[in-house]
């Protein structure tokens, strides 16, 4: 759904008969921000649910892995920023490489989350042999849901970046007109913003 909506802002053309390109851009930008605002409430409700159910209780997670994927996501934000700034300066070549870098780092992040899931020491079932407490199950529930929803956004973001990359390679977009890339990259930063809250809530809050 995110793909549809975020791209939707990029390419409106009808209804613009009385609208200058500058105004169209501004309308698109505010619309995209409202979309982020709206999505952040979904993330925020899950975030709040985590504390409602567990307080600050936290099961053991792989701190090193957590820190690494956080840095990877931050690094991908840097490459995304590079891509957008390069477009603004009209440097298509650099933008292409930076987009490619962002895509790769995004994939690394997603794989990292997948790996984290496979080594997690908490599950969704109570079992005698692992001496699992109910809290273990609830932590599993919120952890898999929160990281899962975030990862779904990462994956859809990667998909949109790939589309933007293909279009850029085919000669679309210019210094003056590249809302398709800007919106995708804003979406990518938004995914990073979510992680800024989710990382401490899931990895750090119990020290």
């Amino acid at each position: 759904m995110a793909v549809i909506a975020a791209h939707g802002h990029g390419v409106e053309s009808h209804g613009a008969s009385h609208m200058s390109p500058e105004k169209r851009l501004r309308v698109n930008r505010v619309g995209l921000w409202l979309f982020f605002f709206s999505e952040s409430i979904i993330f925020g409700l899950l975030f709040t649910s985590r504390f409602f159910l567990l307080g600050t209780h936290q099961e053991h997670v792989d701190q090193f892995l957590g820190l690494v994927i956080t840095i990877v996501l931050l690094a991908s934000s840097v490459t995304a920023y590079t891509a957008e700034t390069a477009m603004e300066k009209g440097n298509r070549k650099l933008a292409q490489w930076a987009l490619l870098g962002t895509i790769l780092l995004g994939v690394v992040f997603a794989v990292g989350v997948g790996f984290e899931w496979s080594v997690a020491e908490f599950g969704l079932k109570l079992s005698e042999e692992h001496h699992q407490e109910p809290q273990n199950v609830v932590f599993g529930t919120v952890f898999f849901t929160m990281t899962g929803l975030h990862a779904a956004h990462v994956v859809s973001g990667v998909g949109m970046l790939v589309l933007a990359f293909i279009m850029l390679s085919r000669g679309h977009f210019s210094k003056e007109s590249h809302w398709g890339i800007s919106s995708t990259i804003m979406y990518w930063h938004f995914v990073d913003v979510v992680w800024v809250f989710y990382y401490p809530a899931l990895y750090l809050v119990a020290g």
């Binding site: 649910s49 409602f52 159910l53 969704l124 079932k125 109570l126 407490e133 109910p134 809290q135 273990n136 199950v137 609830v138 599993g140 529930t141 898999f144 849901t145």
Partner: peptide, 23 residues
């Protein structure tokens, strides 16, 4: 959350596994 409880075995609302229906 309800759907995840139903299809993915999550425990948001399962009191036995530590969830809370009031959530």
């Amino acid at each position: 959350m309800v759907t995840l409880d139903r299809i993915a075995g999550m425990g948001f609302f399962d009191a036995e596994r530590g969830g809370d229906p009031l959530l």
